[in-house]
Amino acid sequence: MDDPRALLQVRDLTAQFNRDGVPSRVVNGISFDIAPGEAVGFVGESGCGKSVTARAIMRLAPEGSSVAWGGRILFRGRDLLRIEEREMRDMRGRRIAMVFQDPMTSLNPVMTVGAQIDDMLCRHAGLSRRAARRRTVELLGLVGIRDPALRADDHPHQFSGGMRQRVLIAIAVSCQPDLLIADEPTTALDVTVQAQILRLLMRLGRELGMALMLITHDFGVIAGMVERVYVMHGGDIVESGEVDALFAGPQHPYTRALLAAVPRIETAGRTT
């Protein structure tokens, strides 16, 4: 299990929220690895602890709540749960980036989308404003936004949901992180747009050599996208393995139930 080549090694990770003095544990000591450039899926229903796991890697507690993390999160040998906040802030965005679930609320409404990529580049890549803007336009083009030089000066409300998620992906990949965490990146989007966004994520992962941690409740999203899958349930990893093997022969009853929940085209048409 201890692979020295691993980019990320999570060992016995626990997360405990404190609600009005009553501790409630949402992640029960899970362990997993992600290799450089590897695409890994995390599947489970909402509340199973997958998003909290992602937040733990970013060391981001939700505003106004206190969460206690335990265990170790080794990223290139550094334990993210124990480094100084200053070092962690340099990691965020630069080494580990994240794409969130709802593109409609994830962009700052009073800043132009270009400025929201610029500030990231100025912070981590040390670019001047002008150089940052050149790179921003390149990045917007890279994620498939037409007329990127013009659109960079538009505000978020002038973009559709799918386009905003593309902007957020551009933000996330702007500093070429080693690990990109995508937390339900397509849940809030139209079905037709979902596939485009997933393909974009996979393409960028390959082109930029990023490892991808794809979190979803939908096995349909995982299929064909990732190499390995972890199935989470009630704060535990209940099953893991190669994605093809898992689809062919799920061992855990919860995995079987999840797979059965994926609608299939050949049966969907006949039921009515």
Binding site: M98, D102, S106, V110, M111, R123
Partner: peptide
């Protein structure tokens, strides 16, 4: 504004506390 998603995104970008305060919290 503090509980808005875009503030979480700003923190995930690794921006400095003053940048988040000025451009994300106060401006909104």
């Amino acid at each position: 504004v503090s509980s808005q998603d875009y503030v979480m995104v700003a923190r995930a970008k690794g921006l400095r506390a003053w940048t988040i305060l000025g451009n994300y919290l106060v401006r909104n």
